[in-house]
Design a binder for these strands. Structure first.
Length: 575
DNA sequence: ACTGTGTGCGCG
DNA sequence: AAAGCGCGCACACAGT
């Protein structure tokens, strides 16, 4: 079985247009053989899709966000798609499409425009009043433009990498909707117990919970500030100063340096306050229903290609509450994360054999120590971070020269990316996602600094902003390529998981009531909800998919992507 | 009452 | 004011 994200087994495209009432499908086996479009009543469309799936088509639609939830609600999944919105964003910005009509053109659809829209639950509805300013771009025209832009990429390698990126991004759009549909198993009762244990009893009238209230009394007493509101940073700084504490901010890491009887209570209060406001009872009430947490995932929501989320803070779930993520009875969670993903990505991109070797069959940072590059694992880690983020101070910067000597190829790659950014240039990931250009204000600032009339302050500011942008582009290539690896990992994984079937159905919603499926993704980490009898197979699939993703991105280059994998009942039990 | 910005902290 | 990237969210506070 070959890599299933790859585009070689392209079986033809089915272009989907229309609305919830009437769907229009056009079969496109090749640019020359375009069948007559067929109109399908909205109610019949899931069945039509189910019948067509046996031919493994690629469904081309405006976005999976709009079209896919209805299919999932009907209990079915699709194998492959083209998310024209996500692919359009990539192609319009990509350095490899410069010179094509698509490059730099406005997006085909502005958010919410057009006659199909999506409500809060992801259901389709017909918009009564489409934005008149929005150009009515036809999906067929958009698809042709995108295909033309890809076919005009001269370099064959760059073209196939871009095809892989578009396929992986589209697969990600399916995963995002499937994860939302399935939901992350969440035990509200466990979460509630956890809250009471940490915060004390909740206040009946929406005030501070018991434990926060008693800490508040203690803080006011020890600072001799009776009416003090510690939630107000301005008020708190003044209160601290009045108590003889030299504080300019209320950040926890800064307060930790201070020796004063009020500080421990204050730090504890801030910790609890965070839990209470971000993931307390009101979070639970608004985000967890029927035993599931269902955030909206936003593939490509970050410039680098990472995902973002909308609502619920799904990518910031504190470790503190992960015990509430519990597998259904008879099911398990398979939790996997990629070890030292970004340095490994960098080694692969730069074809840095020595760095790849340092990470073979072991922790990459330990490998740097073993090969004598640095003295401790901690130094290896902060040093690599400094290389990838552009650090200039502290222990990280101190070991940078050693890393540069040991790994000239890897360090040159990020140094070049930084230099390009400082000049205002565009950098790209391995598969071809490009960084945005700096703003016109940025260019204006750079130009002003080289004007004879420029002050030293102008120059200083311009240099600082140039370096800022250089750190962004430096990190962009690594973070963005890591995001591409993660997309390929998930795309492979969802296909492998879909072939597995348990004997008896579980509580999970169809089409996932018998199959292991992704329920969470966090940049370099996935959680699979699996029938217990299939958990070990799912864990194996997770590993195989990681290896497959490595081959998709780096071919035969010998870079490994080891995972930490745990089969557990609750998320906090992993690693 | 609404909107925009700054602060602080959670995650990778 | 985190040394060094990328985010989202809640709250306080200031402006309308």
């Amino acid at each position: 079985m070959g890599e299933s994200v790859a585009v070689e087994r392209e079986q033809g495209v089915r272009l989907v247009r229309g609305s919830a009432d009437g769907v229009n499908v056009t079969v496109i086996d090749s640019p020359e053989t375009v069948a007559e479009p067929s109109d399908i009543p909205g109610a019949a469309w899931p069945r039509t899709v189910a019948e067509a799936e046996s031919a493994h088509p690629r469904w081309a639609w405006r976005s999976s966000r709009v079209w896919y939830p209805r299919l999932l609600d009907a209990g079915m999944r699709v194998e492959r798609c083209i998310d024209l919105t996500l692919c359009g964003t990539i192609l319009r910005n990509a350095a490899v499409t410069v010179g094509t009509p698509l490059h730099g053109s406005p997006p085909a659809w502005s958010h919410g425009a057009g006659h199909v829209a999506v409500d809060d639950d992801g259901a389709l509805f017909r918009m009564d009043d489409p934005e008149p300013s929005a150009p009515a771009v036809d999906e067929g025209a958009e698809l042709r433009q995108q295909q033309a832009a890809v076919s005009e990429i001269v370099d064959a390698g760059a073209a196939s990498r871009m095809r892989l990126l578009l396929a992986a991004e589209s697969a990600g759009s399916l995963v995002a909707e499937e994860m939302r549909h399935a939901g992350l198993p969440w035990r509200a009762d466990v979460h509630g117990e956890l809250l009471v244990e940490a915060l004390g009893a909740p206040d009946r009238f929406g005030g501070r919970p018991a434990r926060m209230e008693s800490l508040l009394v203690e803080i006011r007493e020890k600072l001799a500030a009776p009416g003090l509101n510690p939630d107000s940073p301005g008020e708190l700084v003044k209160g601290l100063q009045r108590a003889g504490i030299n504080a300019t901010s209320t950040r926890a890491w800064q307060l930790r340096e201070v020796k004063h009887p009020a500080i421990p209570a204050l730090l504890e209060y801030k910790k609890l306050s965070r839990l209470y406001t971000a993931n307390g009872w009101s979070w639970l009430a608004s985000w967890v229903h029927d035993g599931r947490f269902r955030p909206e995932y936003v593939p490509g929501g970050v410039v680098t290609g990472r995902w973002a989320t909308n609502g619920g803070g799904a990518l910031q779930l504190p470790k503190q509450i992960r015990a509430a993520v519990v597998a259904d009875p008879g099911w398990k969670l398979v939790v996997a994360d990629a070890a030292q993903l970004e340095p490994r990505i960098l080694a692969g991109m730069a074809h840095d054999e020595r760095m790849a070797a340092a990470g073979r069959r072991r922790d990459l940072y330990d490998g740097l120590v073993a090969s004598g590059v640095v003295d401790t694992r901690a130094h290896a880690k902060v040093g690599m971070l400094a290389a990838m983020y552009g650090g200039t101070t502290g222990d990280g910067a101190k070991v940078l020269p050693r890393l540069t000597r040991a790994f000239p190829r890897a360090t040159a790659l990020v140094a070049d990316a930084a230099a390009t950014g400082e000049r205002g240039g565009v950098v790209s990931t391995l598969l071809g996602r490009s960084s945005p250009e700096p703003s016109s204000e940025w260019f204006a600032g750079q130009a002003a600094a080289s004007d004879p009339a420029a002050t030293q302050e102008d120059e200083r500011r311009a240099r600082s902003r140039a370096r800022d942008w250089g750190r962004f582009t430096r990190n962009f290539v690594v973070q963005g390529t890591a995001a591409e690896w993660a997309l390929c990992w998930m795309a492979e994984l969802r296909n492998r998981l879909a072939t597995m079937t348990a004997n008896s159905p579980g509580l999970a919603r169809p089409p996932f009531d018998r199959s292991p499926h992704l329920v969470y993704f966090l940049h370099d980490e996935v959680v699979v909800h699996a029938p217990a009898e299939l958990a070990d197979d799912a864990a194996q699939a997770v590993r195989e998919s990681a290896a497959a993703a490595g081959r998709l991105l780096f071919g035969a280059f010998p870079i490994e992507f080891p995972l930490t994998v745990a089969v557990v009942d609750s998320y906090d039990r992993a690693k």
